[in-house]
């Protein structure tokens, strides 16, 4: 526990001093506001670029505010996730490769504290980012169009947060298991892509899957997800989370000899 707080302080200082704790949330906020803003100003933008013949009246139906938030989530699923994966791919593999880990590993280090301190810090940054981005998107949608019921929004954001934490766990696990940051990112993105593809193609056959978390999050803005399906999905996600953390700790310890001396 003492080691955990020591290592968490180190992670905090790192994320503060390399500005990750600032720039990642800023990226998410920008993603969050771009969607409602560009939708609102789309007619004017089209008008200004002169893509339409004179006299043509642009009649675009106002998008539903729920659709806009789901579109924001879509941005997070693509750019947001990529940013988080790239930002944290080197958490462990990078430290081993540049040799900074050596001076930690020669001590009686608790690898659980080592891994979990990194996991917690990355999760905190991911959560700050997701919430800042969603709240910005929520606010802009409310001002420009109309407000989504706040309770639905909360359920949506909480469910999606769990998904992001799962993604962060996967990156850190990959960083512990892989020899370098590039391979860690490659493994994470491949796993995410393949699983999403599988779930997209055959997902109608099952209802319990962590990959459905974003879908269930989105359905909170609609009719709400099926309660049993959601509960089982949450339970399985939790199991995945713990398994990834346990494997991450195990790999951190096993790969300690790979650090550059």
């Amino acid at each position: 526990m003492k080691q955990f707080s020591t290592l968490l302080l180190k992670e905090w200082r790192e994320n503060l001093r390399n500005y990750k704790i600032f720039w990642i949330p800023v990226v998410f906020i920008l993603l969050g506001v771009t969607e409602p803003l560009s939708n609102y100003y789309l007619p004017q933008i089209l008008d200004a670029t002169g893509g339409l013949p004179d006299g043509a009246v642009i009649e675009l139906p106002d998008p539903e505010p729920e659709q806009l938030l789901v579109a924001v989530m879509g941005q997070f699923q693509l750019i947001g996730m990529l940013v988080l994966v790239l930002a944290y791919m080197g958490s462990i593999a990078g430290e081993r490769r540049n040799g900074t880990a050596t001076l930690l590993y020669v001590r009686p280090l608790s690898y659980a504290s080592y891994f979990l301190s990194k996991w917690l810090m990355a999760s905190i940054v991911a959560l700050i980012s997701v919430w800042a981005g969603f709240l910005a998107g929520y606010y802009y949608t409310a001002v420009l169009f109309s407000a989504v019921p706040f309770g639905e929004f909360l359920a949506f954001a909480v469910t999606y947060s769990l998904w992001m934490v799962l993604v962060v766990s996967l990156v850190l696990f990959a960083s512990a298991a892989m020899p370098n940051a590039g391979l860690a990112a490659g493994l994470t993105l491949t796993v995410l892509l393949v699983l999403q593809l599988v779930d997209g193609l055959f997902g109608s056959r099952w209802k319990w899957s962590p990959l459905k978390l974003p879908n269930y999050a989105a359905s909170f803005l609609d009719i709400g997800p099926d309660a049993t399906a959601l509960i089982w999905t949450l339970a399985i996600s939790l199991v995945c989370l713990i398994a990834l953390a346990a494997l991450g700790i195990w790999f951190s310890k096993r790969n300690r000899a790979k650090t550059k001396v």
């Binding site: 180190k10 200082r13 790192e14 001093r17 390399n18 540049n98 040799g99 900074t100 050596t102 001076l103 020669v106 550059k260 001396v261």
Partner: peptide
Amino acid sequence: FLPQYPRFFPWL
């Protein structure tokens, strides 16, 4: 232990 080329976290 002091390695031959000790490497440190530059931001500390």
